[in-house]
Amino acid sequence: MVETATPEVIPDIEQEQKNKTGLEPGYLVICWNDPVNFMDLVTHVFQTVFGWNKVKAEQHMLQVHNQGKSVLTRESMEKAEHYVHELQKYSLHATMERDE
């Protein structure tokens, strides 16, 4: 039986690959203000998408309303994309931005 060689992983390469595939939590999911979405709807969507309680969802909704935007979470690229898609399903104005 042929023995399979154990792959040798060099830490730097592993780190580089991790960054390239977006596994590092370096993306901010942001919801932006608009004059048309209802506050109650925005709160509901935050609760539904992130599983937050009403108090937390309302805090972020008010931040959007009063400050023009709210950073909802900091995630890996894949997760950030997922959340943006979920928010946009409800037609909320959401984007993901690199956290620099």
């Binding site: 994309e81 943006v84 898609h85 946009q88 399903k89 037609s91 984007t95 993901m96 931005e97 690199r98």
Partner: peptide, 20 residues
């Protein structure tokens, strides 16, 4: 709908458009 405000339209944006 835009995936990002700061980054130019990318392959990821196309995927988002398709998903929506």
């Amino acid at each position: 709908q835009r995936l990002s405000r700061s980054e130019a339209k990318s392959e990821d944006q196309e995927l988002l458009d398709e998903a929506l």
